[in-house]
């Protein structure tokens, strides 16, 4: 029997990346650019507004994913808690997101770029 194709769409990859990054100790928030914020406020994202996002915004604002075949690459812009070592927090987020994308998302390979846009108090 042919079991059929399994497809994980880009918004799902972005959500996995966002939630995993936010779950990393020392990551205090994602940092969407103006254009990313605008995009995430679009009608397509409206369904996410009623969800559990901390401030009502779609949780993926600040994450951009591109899927190519079985691979995925994501860019995550985030803020790190002031006083925590930025390289360690960023590397931990990077590793956790890559693992989540391969384990939960089923991607063969995940490239993860981390942009630390802000360092702030909680």
């Amino acid at each position: 029997m042919n079991v059929g194709r399994t497809v994980v769409e880009t918004p799902v990859a972005e959500k996995i990346a966002a939630l995993t990054a936010l779950d990393t100790p020392g990551v205090i928030r994602l940092e969407p650019s103006i254009s990313a914020l605008a995009a995430s406020l679009s009608r397509r994202a409206l369904s996410g507004w009623r969800g559990p996002g901390r401030d009502g915004l779609p949780p993926t604002a600040g994450v951009r994913a591109e899927i190519s075949g079985d691979d995925v690459s994501v860019e995550i812009a985030l803020a790190v808690e002031l006083g925590r070592p930025v390289p360690d927090v960023a590397a931990a987020a990077q590793r956790r997101v890559a693992d989540a994308l391969t384990e939960l998302g089923g991607f063969a390979k995940a490239a993860v770029e981390i942009l630390v846009v802000d360092v702030d108090h909680i």
Binding site: P87, A111, V112, V116, V119
Partner: peptide
């Protein structure tokens, strides 16, 4: 640019570094 490993680059905004 503060790191570039097998997963990808890590970069910190110059202004965020200035905050530290």
């Amino acid at each position: 640019p503060i790191a570039d490993n097998d997963l990808g680059p890590i970069r910190v905004a110059a202004q965020a570094a200035a905050v530290v």
